[in-house]
């Protein structure tokens, strides 16, 4: 199954139309979204913005499960990125996720809840102070944000909250981390259930060096599954908390087996 990995870059390249750089000023929003100007003003401020197809935003055109729409954002073609911001323009809560890549590639995989068909946009801030923006439209049946999480319906969610499964894969020059964290990720839009979501996750290596940092918001899907490409390490420590201060702590390391097991 090596061919999968080999084919992947090809497939991904094909999914990006061109490398053309649109100057945002005077250039129409490629997604033709009514919310774009608002989003730009509230989320990106006064900084200059360009539409840039070098950022890859992978997501299905049609969301089969509006509670779990897979997204991958990869801005590594831009070189150094200091911040990566993902937002869903027509969701009742726009901000989905923020990343400070630090030592990691400006790449993050996750799933989100969408309320209706919406542009999903990624903005990457480069050291020159420029926001590079790309995105795509996901069509959806809706209801993702105003439906109680499945966890909430299960009276036992509290006992598994914060449980982590995860694994490291070494690649060329980087280590891919994938993990799933049990958490209801309630949006607060369901009557009687307050917003309850993972706030922040720090990714550290064994020496305590911070490799990357994520900020999660309400639209991230229940029991988040996250993917990052970190520098090569044999173990990664994940430290974080939700907005109630419940800690999330786990060490994910490479050795699959150990004598004590």
């Amino acid at each position: 199954m090596k061919r999968l990995i080999h084919h992947l870059p090809l497939v991904l390249t094909l999914s990006c139309t061109s490398n053309a750089l649109y100057a945002e000023q005077g250039q129409a929003d490629p997604l033709d979204s009514t919310m774009w100007q608002d989003m730009r003003r509230t989320l990106l401020g006064d900084a200059p913005v360009v539409f840039d197809d070098r950022i890859r935003v992978l997501a299905p055109g049609d969301a089969e499960d509006s509670m779990n729409v897979p997204v991958l954002v990869d801005a590594s073609a831009l070189g150094e990125v200091t911040r990566l911001l993902v937002f869903a323009e027509l969701n009742p809560i726009h901000k989905v996720l923020e990343m400070e890549p630090l030592k990691a590639k400006p790449l993050v995989g996750f799933r989100i809840k969408v309320q209706q068909a919406t542009p999903i946009r990624a903005a990457a801030l480069t050291p020159d102070g420029m926001w590079h923006v790309a995105g795509r439209i996901v069509d959806a049946a809706g209801g993702g944000c105003t439906v109680p999480s499945l966890g909430s319906g299960n009276s036992d969610w509290a006992s598994r909250m914060g449980e982590v499964i995860g694994r490291l894969w070494s690649g060329k020059g980087s280590t891919r981390l994938r993990l799933r964290i049990m958490h209801p990720m309630d949006t607060g839009l369901v009557p009687g259930i307050p917003a309850f979501h993972i706030d922040q996750l720090d990714f550290l290596d064994a020496s305590g060096e911070r490799l990357s940092r994520l900020f999660l918001y309400e639209p991230v899907a229940e029991n988040p599954v996250l993917t990052l490409d970190l520098p090569q390490r044999d173990s990664v420590t994940v430290l974080g908390a939700d907005n109630n201060g419940n800690p999330i702590e786990a060490i994910i390391s490479k050795e699959i087996r150990e004598a004590e097991l």
Binding site: P60, D62, P70, I252, S253
Partner: peptide, 27 residues
């Protein structure tokens, strides 16, 4: 279309099984 739908249906469980192969320490 159907393949993409199938990914949504099937991948989370398959993926979770793969992630469980990893070594995680939690308190």
């Amino acid at each position: 279309e159907e393949y993409q739908r199938s990914v949504t249906h099937l991948y989370p469980a398959i993926e979770a099984r793969a992630l469980r192969q990893g070594r995680v320490v939690q308190e």
